[in-house]
Design a protein around this nucleic acid. Structure first.
Length: 496
RNA sequence: GCGGUUGUGGUCUAGACUGGUUAGGACCCAAGCUUCCCAAGCUUGUGGCCCGGGUUCAAAUCCCGGCAACCGCACCA
C-alpha cells in the first residue's frame, strides 16, 4: 500500500511531478513535470500512439490549437451546459446551483434558465437557503471554461478548450477528404485541455490544465459493422473485469459473452483493456470497466464505460479513461452551428457519421503508473515501470572510483546512450547508486568491475529481483534492448 | 466556494502554547578521501522559518490579511 505523502515526496525529490509555480506558493490545479516525469509522459504518449493508431490504418493523429473560437463551443453545447447559475446564501455562505433549487421546488426542468429567469423564480417561489433558511444573493454565472479575448480589440471571444474532442470534430470534413473518404476514420489528438474547477483536489487527478489523449472514430452503424465484427473476432475471448450499471459487483467475463453491446464498441473496449494490462502492465485485479448508469452520463453518450484503477494514494477506484458511443450528436451540432455539410454519401442517401470516443486523461494514467508501481518497502524503495515507459532504462556505474573503472564505464555508457534512455553516475557507494536508481525505476544497472578489465564482461542487475547476470560488453546493447522489448526474460539469461 | 486542520533547508521534522543564545536534528545532495557489488565510514560544503502587513526594544513564535496543502461539504457538461 503506497502512502500518498511518500509518493509525492519521491516525485519531488527525484524529478517527477510537483506543484507549478511553487516558489510563488503555487496555484491550485496546476502541476509541473520534472526531467523524469516529462520523459515518462513522452514515453506514455509514444506508446499510446503506437498502440491505438496501430488498430487500423485509417486511424491518424492530428495536431490542433488549445483555443477554440466562441462559436465552436456554443455549437457543441459547452457554453450553455458547462455554465451553471450559482446562488449564494447571504447568511451562511453556502452556494447552490440555481436550476437545481428551482427544479426541487417546481419539479420542472430548469436547466435552460439564465440568471434572470432563476432570479425571478426565486422571488416568485420565495425560495430560501435549504441549510439555514437565509436569503439568497443575486444569481451569478459560473462557467467552467476559461474565456479569452482574441485580438487587440477584445471583440472576438474564445475559450481554452475544455476537452480535446472538439478539435477532431472540427477537422472531420477536411481529413475525410484528405484521407480519400475512407471509413471508419479515426482522428487522435494529444494535447492540453482546461477546466476552471471550483476546487481542484487529489494532486494530478483533477487539475485546471490537464492533458488528454483522445481517439475519435467516425463510422456508420449498419454499414461498417462487419469491419468491427471481423476485428472483434480476434479478441472476443479476452477476459475483462466489468461492473455493469445494474450490477453490485464487478465480474470477470469474456467479451463475447456480453450480448447487448455491438462489436464496434466491444472491440475498442477490449483494446483499451489490452493497453492497460499489456502496455501499462497494470495488474488485472486492480483495473476494471464500470458502466455508468444513465443518470451519471451525458445524454448524448449512448454507451459509456470508464476504465478505473484501484488507486492506493487517492482513495480507491477512479476513472483514468473512458469509452463513449456518442452517436451522431457531435457532427450534427457542428453541422448546424457552422452551416457546413458534415454528412457523407451512402447507398441510402447522405448520413451524418457516428462517433465512438476513446478518451484518456494522461496525467491520471501517469499517476496510475506511479501509484501502482511504487513500492516503498522497508528494506528498499523501488519503482516498477514497464521497460518501454520508464524514464531511465539503464544506468552504468564503475564499481569503485579508481584503477580506470570510471573511464571504462564511461565508454560503456556512451554505447548504451545511443539507443536507450541511459544514465551514468559514480558518486557514493555502489549500493547507494543501486538504491537511488531503484527509486526512480531504472530498469537495469550495469556495473563495470575488475573482471571487466580482464575479459570485457559486465554485470546487469534487474530492478525487480535485484539479481545479476554477467555478459560480454559486445552483446550488452542487444541484450538490454531484448529485455526491454520483452523478447527474452531476465530469467532466461540467468539460466543460459 | 464554505468549515476544520496545517505551512520551518531538497525531504522529514524539533522549536511556537509561555516572544529573547548563532533556528537544532535525521536523511538527501555536492566535492574529496576510502571502498572488489546492494543506502558503510571520515572530512568539507550548499541550503530554511509560505507571502504581506501589524504589535513589540525584540517575532519562526502573538494579531490581521492573502496564498497553498490536507480532510469534510458543495461542485465535477
Amino acid at each position: 500500500m503506497t502512502d500518498r505523502e511518500e509518493l509525492e515526496s519521491m516525485c519531488k525529490r527525484r524529478g517527477f511531478i510537483w506543484q507549478s509555480a511553487e516558489i510563488y506558493g503555487g496555484e491550485a490545479g496546476f502541476y509541473d513535470y520534472g526531467h523524469l516525469g516529462a520523459r515518462l509522459l513522452d514515453n506514455w504518449k509514444r506508446e499510446w500512439k503506437e498502440f491505438f493508431l496501430g488498430l487500423d490504418e485509417n486511424y491518424q493523429v492530428i495536431h490542433t490549437p488549445s483555443i477554440h473560437p466562441y462559436r465552436v463551443l456554443e455549437a457543441s453545447g459547452h457554453v450553455d451546459h458547462f455554465s451553471d447559475v450559482m446562488v449564494r446564501c447571504e447568511r451562511c455562505g453556502s452556494s447552490f446551483r440555481g436550476d437545481q433549487l428551482v427544479e426541487e421546488e417546481t419539479g420542472e426542468n430548469a436547466e435552460w434558465m439564465g440568471k434572470e429567469e432563476i432570479s425571478e423564480k426565486i422571488l416568485e417561489l420565495d425560495l430560501s437557503c435549504p441549510d439555514c433558511g437565509g436569503t439568497f444573493s443575486e444569481p451569478e454565472d459560473f462557467n467552467m471554461m476559461f474565456q479569452l479575448d482574441i485580438g487587440p480589440t477584445g471583440e472576438k471571444k474564445g475559450f481554452l478548450r475544455p476537452e480535446t474532442a472538439q478539435s477532431a470534430y472540427l477537422n472531420f470534413r477536411r481529413e475525410f477528404r484528405a484521407l480519400r473518404k475512407k471509413m471508419p476514420m479515426g482522428l487522435a489528438t494529444i494535447g492540453s485541455a482546461f477546466r476552471n474547477e471550483i476546487s481542484p483536489r487529489r494532486g494530478v487527478y483533477r487539475m485546471r490544465e490537464f492533458q488528454q489523449a483522445e481517439l475519435q472514430i467516425f463510422f456508420l452503424p449498419g454499414i461498417h459493422d462487419d469491419i468491427y465484427e471481423a476485428k472483434f473476432e480476434e479478441i472476443k475471448d479476452t477476459k475483462v473485469r466489468i461492473k455493469r450499471a445494474e450490477a453490485e459487483e464487478a465480474k470477470e467475463i469474456e467479451l463475447q459473452d456480453i450480448e447487448d453491446i455491438p462489436a464496434f464498441y466491444l472491440y475498442h473496449l477490449g483494446e483499451m483493456y489490452r493497453f492497460a494490462s499489456e502496455v501499462m502492465d497494470l495488474d488485472p485485479k486492480e483495473i476494471r470497466f464500470r458502466e455508468l448508469p444513465s443518470e451519471e452520463r451525458a445524454f448524448y453518450n449512448k454507451i459509456h464505460f470508464d476504465l478505473e484503477v484501484d488507486f492506493d494514494t487517492i482513495g480507491g477506484w477512479k476513472e483514468i479513461s473512458g469509452l463513449h458511443y456518442r452517436s451522431d450528436h457531435d457532427l450534427k451540432q457542428h453541422q448546424e452551428g457552422s452551416n457546413t455539410k458534415l454528412s457523407v454519401p451512402t447507398d441510402n442517401g447522405r448520413k451524418i457519421p457516428h462517433v465512438i470516443e476513446l478518451s484518456y486523461g494522461i496525467d491520471r494514467n501517469i499517476w496510475a503508473l506511479l501509484d501502482k508501481g511504487y513500492h516503498p518497502d522497508d528494506d528498499r524503495a523501488w519503482l516498477d515501470l514497464p521497460g518501454r515507459l520508464t524514464p531511465r532504462q539503464v544506468a552504468v556505474f564503475p564499481l569503485v572510483r579508481k584503477d580506470g573503472l570510471p573511464e571504462k564505464s564511461r565508454e560503456v555508457y556512451d554505447v548504451l546512450d545511443d539507443d536507450l534512455l541511459a544514465h551514468w553516475e559514480k558518486s557514493g557507494s555502489i549500493g547507494k547508486r543501486y538504491a537511488r536508481n531503484d527509486e526512480v525505476g531504472t530498469r537495469y544497472c550495469v556495473t563495470i568491475d575488475y573482471d571487466t578489465l580482464e575479459d570485457d564482461t559486465v554485470t546487469i542487475r534487474d530492478v525487480e529481483s535485484t539479481e545479476q547476470i554477467r555478459v560480454s560488453i559486445d552483446e550488452i546493447d542487444e541484450i538490454i534492448e531484448g529485455l526491454i522489448e520483452g523478447e527474452k526474460s531476465f530469467q532466461y539469461h540467468q539460466k543460459s
